[in-house]
Design a protein around this nucleic acid. Structure first.
Lengths: 252, 252
DNA sequence: GAGTGGTCTAGACCACACC
DNA sequence: GTGTGGTCTAGACCACTCC
């Protein structure tokens, strides 16, 4: 019968809208448990799949989160502020501090799973770095964990020929990080470009970033340029959008 | 029976993975039609709801798009590049050109539905603009349409007392737009801050932006500062993430 | 008219969380 | 153990698209 009676909206959308409004109105706050499938079935006189669909709508909107065996709960958001410009200022990495430390002041951040490899450059990266087909790149893959949750995956690509024999090719790139090492090589990054996209994650990414359904990811692709105009690094990052707010400051 | 036999993944995820891989491998290109529910039922020997769930996974990943009565199709992406820094350079709006025109070179862009109102300032906006409870703001709401598709909704807030009697309070803000008018008022914007978030849209937003399921939105909140350090405008934008790639350039 | 996806029902078994 | 959400079946009627 699909759509008779009350209104033009399908039942499951009506139920979803009702719950969404209740959350908006503060009836259910962050962390609160919503009426479950059985309760919705009884209250609205619908079949289980219909109640389930309603909750599915809110889930794919990122409003609620289902926990198996426990219930459906209102999600809360505490994004970290990531300053795109100040965090890459030379006085940050020039002073021997980690670039990342400029982001998070007092929360428990861990960088783990650093893996450094030498590989053939992916097509687009090779193009930006100006590499020939035969040239390889040094890839530094990292995982960033904040308060126990994975919030970002990062892959940094540098011309292998340029960074050979430096600390860049080791997991610990030393004080000031990769950019300080590049400066010592006479390739000090002086200009950056960040390109931002937003999309839904693949199933694999959702697992790696521990994302609950309805959470998009942010792709940031940063290119670092030396004084000569040469691109010396390409860094591809994938961020949990529920964990981040990006900020860029600039003049007119 | 839920989960026996082949593997540990639920059937609908297996089917989804299979289709996803086929798309990745190019078996189905952008715009191509995927096997429908009936076909999946027959090929995999599953019930309709299971085949449906599989397609639902790909839909919520933004990979495919269902068209009622027609089929399920692979989506294609042609994002517009939005340069965050250059587009707000003074020589753009100072020369009497529209800020927006810096974004899109040769595609059919329309700004429509401009509505200008005077309202009480929303709490966060009032705080940034440094307004008292009793002070109102001039709100300029706009809709941006590219190649026939709505790609952005924008609400610009300015102190009503500051802009009273200027073209800012009319739908057509004149050559160079709002910023040129602010300059004439002695409040030339010299510094900008853009804050970016990403999330799934509400049902209402999805409709207004004509988003297919699985498409996140990008929120950009831009604050314009005058020489004095005073915030003179707050612009809240909501973008279709499938239509945009953001770009920011800056020095070390 | 035939085929498609959209909505909905009424059952079922399972794994997991909490008590 | 009881209740929760996760998966799955086997039907049904509808609105829509395309021929």
């Amino acid at each position: 019968m699909a759509n008779h009676g009350t209104g033009r909206l399908p039942k499951y959308r009506q139920i979803a809208a009702e719950l969404r409004d209740a959350i908006q109105a503060g009836v259910y706050g962050p962390g609160d448990r919503l009426p479950g499938e059985n309760e919705l079935m009884a209250e609205h006189g619908v079949a289980r799949m219909t109640a389930r669909q309603a909750l599915g709508v809110l889930q794919s909107e990122g409003v609620v989160e289902a926990r198996k065996g426990a219930g459906v709960f209102v999600r809360s958001f505490r994004p970290v502020r990531r300053r795109g410009v100040q965090r890459l200022a030379e006085d940050v990495w020039g002073a021997g501090r980690s670039v990342w430390s400029a982001d998070v002041e007092s929360r428990d951040l861990v960088v783990d799973g650093v893996r450094v490899t030498e590989e053939a450059a992916p097509g687009p990266v090779a193009g930006v770095l100006g590499l020939e087909e035969t040239e390889t790149v040094c890839v530094r893959r990292r995982r960033f964990v904040l308060d126990g949750k994975t919030v970002m995956l990062s892959s940094s690509y540098l011309p292998a020929a340029l960074v050979a024999g430096t600390a860049i090719t080791t997991p610990d790139s030393g004080p000031g990080g990769t950019y300080a090492r590049l400066a010592e090589l006479g390739c000090k990054p002086v200009h950056f470009r960040e390109e931002i996209r937003c999309r839904m994650p693949s199933a694999e990414e959702a697992e790696r970033l521990q994302l609950s359904p309805g959470t998009p990811v942010i792709d940031i692709c940063r290119t670092a340029f030396a004084e000569s105009g040469r691109a010396v690094e390409v860094n591809e990052m994938t961020l949990d959008s529920a964990s981040y707010a990006l900020e860029y400051d600039f003049g007119a």
